[in-house]
């Protein structure tokens, strides 16, 4: 039972981290001008701070999950956030996520799983 709860928390955590990346993308899209201007306008952008908060929250979720799950299971599962980010990008940014891209994301998740299994 605790295993299921930990998995649910992990799903929520990866979702938060993917929305954080999504907010960073929105921040990036709104930036104009050179590097120096870019840094300042980024720091003044509320979405940037929302992105940081979402990242921080996802990190807390991950810490809680690690108390229940071994790292070799928990860590590869965090690569779920590539899936969430692709779904968000398709829904709200109008990106065309073709089957090649899904295959690539799948390969990356398999690769991260293999590395984690190798370390366990």
């Amino acid at each position: 039972m605790e295993f299921i709860v930990a998995l649910l928390l992990l799903v929520v955590g990866t979702w938060l981290s993917a929305t954080g990346m999504f907010m960073l993308k929105l921040t990036a899209d709104s930036l104009k001008g050179g590097i120096a201007d870019g840094i300042i306008s980024m720091l003044l952008h509320w979405r940037f701070w929302l992105a940081c908060t979402l990242y921080g929250a996802s990190f807390l979720f991950y810490l809680v999950v690690l108390r229940e799950l071994p790292i070799s299971i928990a860590y590869p599962l965090t690569s779920m956030n590539y899936i969430w980010a692709a779904l968000l990008a398709r829904r709200y940014l109008g990106e065309r996520v073709d089957s090649w891209r899904w295959t690539g994301i799948g390969l990356i998740i398999v690769g991260i799983t293999l590395i984690s299994v190798g370390h366990a």
Binding site: D98, W100, R101, T103, G104, I105, G106, L107, I108, V110, G111, I112, T113, L114, I115, S116, V117, G118, H119
Partner: peptide
Amino acid sequence: KLSPFGIAGILTIIAGVSLIGHTS
């Protein structure tokens, strides 16, 4: 040291990243 699983994992990640980079 890198285990066989680790090597396989690294090669798989490279394949996935190349696929995404190339097709995009």
